[in-house]
């Protein structure tokens, strides 16, 4: 059963690669997984993942709970290793470097590959210190630069006007949506190459969600974004490409409009039309 599924998924990826090679010419590949497998102990959580993400695009990963989408995005900055029983095989290339290589410095990788988490997780510090945290841990200490970085990042995260008069207040005093934008600003402060977002709006109200979605469109100009979401409308609204994960396999990866309007795989169609998940 599982074997056949893996085969079909592999075929679909091949199809996709044939169909969409012209599009990939436009933007450079930034992340490429080659036969990537991951186990939690004996549980084979990700199976033969072959995927490429591109510069200045928003790529969405959708799929039902437990499909491996969160695990996959956390593999891209190796945060998945915080679980001690994880084992991986295959390659994940970040701009031609295999990040699974033992010699990879994870601190350096995570500086370039920023991450925004499911629930807003500001530090119990002032707004200013939250945003200045990244530059500080990377050795930037002079006040003037930090001031500029903080302002720039907060502006990029579209929250400067709301907090500019209370930068020294504790970040926990803000609303959930504001906290999440502080977290985005904090991630942007080190000017990452890519921003990974793991269900960034799942804990937020609709208005805050819209604000963050608008923000993503702005950020796309300077950054590449990979977003995991279980909200299909969100994927349809914000992303250029969408990958559908199911039971640890990539079932289909294509332009977002194709995934939602004309999927090639029955399972993708069932999922995006809400028949399961």
């Amino acid at each position: 059963m599982i074997m056949t599924k893996e085969k079909t998924s592999a075929i679909h990826i091949d199809n996709k690669n044939l169909n969409h090679s012209p599009m990939e010419m436009q933007n450079k590949e930034i992340f490429t997984s080659k036969n990537f497998n991951l186990w939690y102990g004996d549980n084979h959580a990700l199976k033969n993942i072959n995927l490429s993400f591109h510069e200045n695009e928003i790529s969405a990963i959708i799929g039902p709970s437990g499909c491996g989408k969160s695990t996959y995005i956390k593999s891209l900055n190796r945060m998945v290793e915080l679980v001690p029983i994880v084992r991986t095989e295959g390659e994940i290339l970040y701009r031609d470097t295999n990040i699974l290589d033992k010699n990879m410095t994870v601190e350096e990788l995570r500086t370039k590959v920023g991450m925004v988490f499911q629930k807003p997780n500001p530090f119990p510090k002032s707004i200013y210190d939250n945003v200045a945290y990244g530059p500080r841990i990377h050795g930037i200490k002079d006040k003037k630069t930090l001031d500029q970085v903080v302002e720039k990042s907060l502006r990029q995260a579209a929250i400067w006007d709301e907090v500019k008069d209370r930068l020294n207040d504790n970040a926990y005093g803000l609303s959930g949506g504001q906290q999440q934008r502080i977290c985005i600003a904090r991630t942007l402060a080190v000017e990452p190459d890519i921003v990974l977002m793991d269900e960034p709006t799942s804990a937020l109200d609709p208005i805050s969600t819209i604000k963050i979605e608008d923000l993503m469109q702005e950020l796309k100009k300077e950054y590449s974004i990979i977003i995991v979401t279980h909200n299909m409308q969100q994927a349809a609204r914000v992303s250029d490409k969408t990958a559908f994960f199911y039971q640890g396999n990539v079932i289909e990866y294509n332009d977002t409009n194709i995934i939602f309007e004309n999927p090639h795989d029955k399972r993708t169609e069932d999922y995006v039309t809400g028949r399961f998940g």
Binding site: P135, G139, Q148, V149, K152, R155, A189, V190, E191
Partner: peptide, 14 residues
């Protein structure tokens, strides 16, 4: 906005 060269400064940080 001024370019702060943050990426470069981070890369140079030992």
């Amino acid at each position: 906005m001024v370019d702060l060269n943050i990426r470069e400064r981070i890369a140079n940080n030992q």
